[in-house]
Design a protein around this nucleic acid. Structure first.
Length: 203
DNA sequence: TAGTATCA
DNA sequence: TAAA
């Protein structure tokens, strides 16, 4: 496995998945989204997010007027489908974690979608890293600091890239400023899919 | 503060 | 809110 590039403690595995592996993963995700359709969540303040979300695994991350939390079911009431093996293999290759991910959040960025700087801090065990997989259009990923404020660095993530957020970077702020809509041919309808794999429950 | 507007 |  190629060495990752370290940016603010984030490990970027550039081109980790080749095109056939990306296509196989997208085929698996089509099954996930058929069982657990994408929804557009709102923040606790009632503002709609631009990203559309679903999940697979034991838990999905959800946001609504009641707050941020992990739930064992899709808002429709159905259980989240299992995490595809193609996705679990990425976790096993790069996470360095002996636990399996309990949540695979599926974020779909359409034209103009963004994700403001935030921390992943709704999990009970920060010793486990967060693993992010990019599929489809390129996205401008921004990385900040654990505390608020300070300088940030940005990098364009391309289809097949994998980022591991662990150790000192586990609680760093991060977000997506922009999508180059139509820059990839992977997804027939365009857009960017980002998977984030997380351990949710206490060690 | 997982959003958004607005500024230099 | 601050950064870009």
């Amino acid at each position: 496995m190629a060495e990752p590039r370290l940016i603010r403690g984030f490990a970027l595995f550039d081109g980790f998945l080749d095109r056939p592996a990306q296509e196989a993963m997208v085929a698996d995700l089509r099954g996930v989204l058929a069982a657990a359709p994408l929804v557009r969540p709102e923040t606790p303040r009632g503002q709609k997010m631009s990203v559309r979300m679903s999940a697979c695994g034991d838990f999905g991350w959800v946001s609504d007027r009641r707050g941020y939390r992990y739930e064992p079911r899709h808002p429709s009431g159905v259980a989240w489908p299992p995490i595809p093996q193609s996705v679990l293999r990425v976790w096993q290759a790069v996470s360095g974690c002996d636990r399996l991910p309990e949540c695979c959040l599926v974020n779909w960025y359409g034209e103009g979608a963004r994700m403001g700087l935030h921390q992943d801090r709704d999990e009970a065990d920060f010793a486990a890293p967060v693993v992010s997989v990019s599929l489809g259009d390129e996205g401008l990923f921004r990385m900040g600091n654990t505390g608020r404020g300070g300088s940030t660095e940005s990098v364009w993530l391309r289809s097949g890239d994998v980022v591991v957020m662990g150790g000192e970077a586990r609680l760093r702020h991060h977000g997506v400023d922009r999508i180059r809509f139509g820059s990839s041919t992977l997804l027939p309808n365009g857009g960017r899919i980002n998977l984030t794999l997380r351990v949710v429950t206490p060690a």
